[in-house]
């Protein structure tokens, strides 16, 4: 809380002023079946601090399913996931203590304003924000004049930006992003790109799916899902 309040918070770079401790996510021989179709079998990878993993594959290859497994929302049929050597299922405060997830849905309440949405979710995730921190983050994502409007009056792209603002304010080391570039205009893509780079520079980790080329500097790998791969 004090971190975000103390930071000048004018660029995403300054919002992650303190690097995260080095974490490591290991995934070992993951098996997942959805509706009698084997999506992946024996999926193994390891993600270290400061790395980006892009999950690629055609539609229906199981990209979103994989992200949901990594979040702990979907239970894999077999395989292990460990966070710093601790099985994810046995973490004290669950997987949500170390990761932030941005899925297909923005998880915003239409009747609440952008600021209220972010405030309540940050408090729910155990990292309350000062109103100033929220406003300056929204400002930075180009929502300065819209922070007090009910979210239902915002466009798709603007809603996505509010969800991004929440992601940036949560300060979790691992970001799991499902199509983060969808519905964003060029300017915000650039802001998001900078935020991703800053996150990697602060030893954060990113796992994302996208159909676009990610123009992010830093170590990155691609994991391609195919039929039963």
């Amino acid at each position: 809380m004090s971190d975000a309040a103390a930071a000048p918070a004018h660029t995403p770079g300054t919002l992650t002023p303190h690097p995260f401790p080095a974490h490591c996510l290991e995934v070992d021989s993951l098996v997942l079946e959805r509706g009698e179709r084997l999506l992946f079998n024996g999926l193994t990878f390891c993600l270290d601090a400061g790395e980006l993993l892009q999950v690629a594959g055609r539609n229906g290859a199981g990209k979103t399913s994989l992200l949901r497994v990594l979040c702990g929302l979907t239970r894999p049929m077999d395989g292990d996931m460990t966070w710093d050597g601790v099985p994810v299922r046995r973490l004290d405060d669950g997987p949500g203590g170390h990761l932030a997830y941005l899925g297909h849905h923005n998880a915003l309440k239409d009747e609440l304003s952008a600021e209220e949405n972010i405030q309540s979710q940050c408090r729910l995730h155990g990292c309350p924000q000062t109103p100033e921190a929220v406003f300056s983050m929204l400002d930075e994502l180009g929502l300065g004049g819209h922070a007090d409007l009910p979210v239902k009056l915002l466009s798709q792209g603007q809603k996505r930006r509010v969800a991004l603002a929440r992601l940036l304010l949560l300060r979790r080391p691992l970001w799991i992003l499902d199509e983060p570039f969808a519905a964003l205009d060029v300017q915000v893509i650039e802001v998001l790109r900078q935020a991703l780079e800053a996150h990697l520079a602060a030893r954060g980790m990113i796992i994302l799916t996208t159909h676009q080329v990610v123009p992010v500097r830093g170590p990155q790998r691609t994991l391609t899902l195919g039929d039963g791969a």
Binding site: L73, G96, H104, A107, L108, H125
Partner: peptide, 19 residues
């Protein structure tokens, strides 16, 4: 459920029964 808030609720580091 529809707007994705429930997913986020499951991901908060708080005990789900209390939420």
């Amino acid at each position: 459920f529809r707007d994705g808030s429930l997913e986020q609720l499951l991901l908060t580091p708080q005990p789900l029964p209390l939420l």
